[in-house]
């Protein structure tokens, strides 16, 4: 096995780790990290492929990687700004579907939970204050339904 092939194998394994992290982790920052691992693994594969030739080092994959690094940092930066804004708006560090699945995504639909709410009279049980995030989400939804999609 050549050095290039060895590193290509490592790149493959890193790809797997990156995708695994993206799927299994819920924290947004963790998911961005996983994507960055994935990116660097692809770059490593390119660099390894450039090294395969016995007589020369291929400059084209190098140029591709250089371009890719800048693109990766741009996308990461934007994703992080987005995550910060999302956190500021909702107080969450996860995507909403990881928070609670149905109601957040299909508001107003007659699903099991809201049926149960309706039967029990709705609203939180007396004596238990609503959570801050919940309140914020509700007001958010109200605003949306008032103004519609912009």
């Amino acid at each position: 096995m050549s050095q290039a092939a060895f590193y290509a194998l490592v790149a493959g394994a890193l790809t797997g780790i990156g995708i695994y992290g993206l799927i299994t982790q819920r924290h947004l920052l963790r998911r961005v990290l996983a994507v960055n691992i994935l990116g660097s693994s692809v770059f490593l594969l390119l660099v390894a492929l450039a090294r395969r030739h016995p007589d020369y080092v291929d400059p084209v994959p190098h140029a591709m990687v250089l371009t890719g690094i800048v693109i990766a940092v741009s996308a990461t930066a934007f994703a992080l700004v987005l995550a910060r804004r999302y956190h500021a708006a909702t107080g969450l560090t996860h995507l909403p579907e990881d928070e609670e699945s149905e109601e957040a995504l299909a508001p107003g639909l007659l699903n099991r939970r809201s049926l149960a709410d309706r039967r029990s009279g709705g609203g939180p049980p007396p004596g238990q204050p609503e959570r801050r995030q919940g309140a914020r989400r509700r007001s958010d939804e109200d605003r949306r339904s008032d103004e519609g999609a912009q």
Binding site: L22, R31, L95, E97, D98, L105, A106, L110, N111, R112
Partner: peptide, 13 residues
């Protein structure tokens, strides 16, 4: 209800 349930499962990243 069914289609909402399916969609809410699918929509998770």
């Amino acid at each position: 209800r069914w289609s909402a349930a399916i969609e809410s499962r699918l929509v998770a990243l």
